[in-house]
């Protein structure tokens, strides 16, 4: 079960170094998950503090990346829940009207970001863990604490929905529920 790149760290210092090496991945994932860069880094910071506070619970030889993503995921769930309780406010800003593109990557990021924000969180996390972070289904199931079959069905639904949002026919006016934010 060892991931070659994660099998090495043993001592606390080495684990810390390995944690630091994961920060860019955690940031990328959090950015795609939340869209807002500051909120994403806040989540990563919380994750790092919580993870480092329990380094003693990490078992050397197991997958550090999965562990960190699991910590981040649990924080994401807790935060979403408190936010949802406070009010049913959306997690991200509503899609903004198109602005003249500065560069293609930015435009793609905005389109993809908008489309992702329309997915229910449980589908979004699976699409991102597998599609962006290149996790195996097993790793994603471990991160989320759900059976592998659940990962597969959420992935299927999430990608199909994303496909319709990105490439499908215009949905406005058709009463199609696909675009509605589902909480």
């Amino acid at each position: 079960m060892n991931e070659e790149e994660n099998a090495a760290p043993v001592g606390p210092d080495q684990i810390r170094d390995a944690v630091v090496a994961e920060i860019p991945h955690l940031r990328r994932y959090a950015r795609a998950l939340l869209r807002d860069a500051t909120a994403a880094d806040d989540l990563v910071q919380d994750c790092l503090e919580r993870a480092l506070g329990r380094l003693h619970l990490f078992q050397p030889g197991t997958n550090l990346r999965s562990w960190l993503f699991a910590v981040l995921h649990n924080l994401f769930i807790s935060q979403r829940r408190t936010q949802a309780r406070r009010r049913d406010e959306p997690m991200a800003e509503p899609p903004s009207p198109a602005v003249p593109p500065v560069q293609t990557a930015r435009l793609e990021a905005r389109d993809m970001g908008n489309a992702l924000a329309q997915l229910p969180a449980e589908q979004r996390v699976v699409v991102l863990l597998i599609g962006l972070e290149d996790m195996s289904y097993r790793e994603a199931a471990d991160v989320l604490g759900v059976p592998i079959g659940t990962v597969m069905s959420r992935l299927s639904r999430g990608r199909e929905r994303l496909r319709l949002l990105m490439e499908g026919p215009p949905v406005e006016g058709s009463g199609e529920p696909v675009l509605r934010r589902v909480k």
């Binding site: 860019p24 990021a109 389109d111 993809m112 599609g131 962006l132 990105m166």
Partner: peptide, 15 residues
């Protein structure tokens, strides 16, 4: 779609 995800967010890892 997978490629588009990377195109949109990989730049974060370079920041």
């Amino acid at each position: 779609q997978k490629a588009a995800l990377h195109a949109a967010f990989d730049r974060v890892t370079e920041e």
